[in-house]
């Protein structure tokens, strides 16, 4: 039976959609690479090997290298507690984990300044002991951890809830210890969801601008991440430099999208397999 629009309507709607996506997504992406290479490969390469750019890349990698594992372990712990047990305040906890997503990154940065800045009690104590958090690397790492906080937990909780806990119970009945159950049954079952969460965390960690901008202090070669470095170069009208650094981040975004699409495809396949299984079971019952 005909349950779709006529051919011209379909064609017009598809064309409109593609035009919209073309202007809003493809053109900006193309512009990044175009501008980066507008003065040739030599200048592009030169902009990337520059000392300050290199320092920014290093700092970005450090921040991501700390934030990602921290949020990974947190996400797994939170998902284990939430998806495997019934306890009071569970829905409140789930809401609180999502909180960083509903806060403006600038407000997030401000909160850390208020917490660790020189005017606060903690900040005063830290200053007295010569420990600097705001306008230094620890502040950047903390702000990054904050803005990427929910990603892993958010991927894992629904996945683990959907999978149920019968396999883990089976492992325990067979004499496995808690850790053995976790490593040999739970983790392999959620590995794709976990990877998905890690990719999203990493992409956001390396690209975060607002929150990091507030706590960084913009000290060149010291507390600038790649996005902050891009801003400085751009404001100095060094467009080739700015877009060269931006192109690294854009490449990272493309890689993220590619891996994400692959992982989604894997999850979908796993899901379809289990769907087919339930289908078979249902048919068998009927």
């Amino acid at each position: 039976m005909q349950t779709t629009e006529s051919r011209p309507v379909r064609f017009a709607l598809t064309a409109l959609t593609l035009a919209f996506l073309g202007v809003f997504l493809v053109v900006p992406l193309a512009a990044v690479f175009w501008e980066a290479l507008s003065k040739g490969w030599d200048l592009y390469a030169a902009a990337l090997v520059e000392y300050e750019a290199w320092q920014a890349i290093k700092l970005t990698l450090i921040a991501a290298a700390i934030a990602v594992p921290l949020n990974l372990v947190f996400g797994v712990a939170a998902a284990w507690a939430i998806a495997r047990f019934d306890f009071r305040g569970k829905s409140l906890l789930t809401t609180l984990i999502d909180l960083p997503f509903s806060v403006s990154p600038v407000v997030a940065g401000l909160m850390y300044v208020l917490l660790f800045g020189v005017n606060s009690a903690i900040g005063g104590w830290l200053a007295a002991h010569d420990i600097q958090i705001i306008f230094a690397v620890p502040g950047i790492v903390l702000a990054t951890v904050f803005v990427t906080f929910p990603f892993v937990a958010r991927e894992l909780i629904p996945l683990m809830q959907a999978q149920g806990q019968e396999e883990e119970q089976a492992a325990l009945v067979l004499g496995a210890s808690g850790w053995q159950t976790f490593w040999r049954v739970t983790l392999p079952n959620v590995k794709w969801g976990l990877l998905y969460g890690v990719i999203l965390t990493n992409a956001r960690a390396m690209g975060e601008f607002g929150a990091v901008s507030v706590v960084s202090g913009h000290i060149r070669g010291e507390t600038n991440t790649i996005p902050l470095h891009v801003e400085i170069l751009y404001n100095e009208y060094n467009f080739v430099g700015a877009f060269a650094c931006a192109s690294i981040l854009a490449l990272l975004a493309l890689v993220t999208l590619a891996v994400k699409t692959y992982v989604e495809w894997r999850i979908e396949r796993q899901h379809t397999a289990s769907l087919i299984r339930t289908q078979q079971a249902r048919e068998a019952l009927a």
Binding site: E167, A170, S177, N189
Partner: peptide, 28 residues
């Protein structure tokens, strides 16, 4: 449960989906 030495067969089998049949049986 791990100390009771019981065998339990779950209604929906609860086979470890990422392991082969051999590894499933060998798990315990």
């Amino acid at each position: 449960v791990a100390e009771r030495q019981v065998g339990f067969v779950f209604q929906h089998y609860a086979l470890f989906r990422h392991m082969t049949v051999f590894d499933n049986v060998a798990f315990g």
